[in-house]
């Protein structure tokens, strides 16, 4: 892999993280380049999801640096950095309310004021992921796991972030919908995707598959 710093979108450098005295991340380093579709693999409990949560500043590594778009993440710029990232959690919890309300909430944030027009593309995205329009009036808590995942993916796409973090984001989808999601990200050339996967189907659109063991010292 040729390293070109100006093209490194996410750079993780020697991350260490302990939880209750147990090491979760051991000297982890990983560079993700512009337009890359990197998939992290490894057994459950290997810290894959934690890597994504560190990038978002939801978990603080005990040492090491995280660089996003050329700038090390600090307590001062994390709020700014999050505006460049979309995140789809495993079993997303999107709060309460109707699906329509839940979709609109992130667009009500000041940080996303410029993205409000993107909501016009919602019907198109929903069709792509086989989500029927009447779903919008349902309560989000009544949706199936797969429907929730596709709603969360739709929000992530509409936010038009340059970096997308997916945490087993298609685990509850059937083969057809998994393919639809993979196809979408495959054609999104300017979007950098770091995903975490358990199952092999998800790897379909990855340009690089990285095992958690490869990037840490053991």
């Amino acid at each position: 892999m040729i390293s070109n710093d100006s093209e490194t979108v996410v750079d993780l450098n020697r991350l260490h993280l302990y939880f209750d005295g147990q090491p979760v991340l051991k000297d982890l380093s990983l560079g993700v380049f512009h337009g890359d579709k990197v998939t992290l693999t490894g057994p459950s409990g290997s810290g894959k999801s934690t890597v994504l949560r560190c990038i978002l500043g939801l978990v603080m590594p005990d040492s090491g640096t995280i660089t996003i778009l050329g700038e090390p993440v600090t307590r001062h710029n994390i709020w700014q950095k999050r505006r460049h990232i979309a995140y789809v959690a495993q079993e997303p919890d999107l709060g309460t309310g109707s699906v329509k309300e839940v979709i609109e909430i992130p667009f009500s944030y000041r940080a996303n004021a410029g993205m409000r027009d993107n909501l016009a593309r919602l019907p198109e995205i929903m069709e792509r992921f086989n989500l029927p329009q009447p779903l919008l009036d349902k309560q989000i808590t009544r949706l199936s796991g797969g429907e929730k995942q596709r709603i969360a993916l739709s929000i992530a796409i509409l936010l038009a972030r340059p970096i997308v973090l997916l945490d087993e984001a298609s685990s509850a989808l059937d083969a057809e919908n998994k393919q639809a999601v993979a196809d979408y990200f495959k054609q999104a050339q300017n979007t950098t995707v770091l995903s975490v996967a358990h199952d092999s189907e998800w790897l379909g659109f990855a340009t690089r598959v990285v095992d958690m063991k490869e990037i840490q010292k053991t």
Binding site: L56, R82, A86, P92, G95, P106, R110
Partner: peptide, 22 residues
């Protein structure tokens, strides 16, 4: 209790006040 939903709103770019408002 709703840590996941709260973290998700931070990840969506919410300011602290926006994330705690609900």
């Amino acid at each position: 209790k709703n840590e996941k939903a709260y973290h998700q709103s931070l990840a969506y770019g919410a300011a602290l006040t926006e994330a705690v408002n609900p």
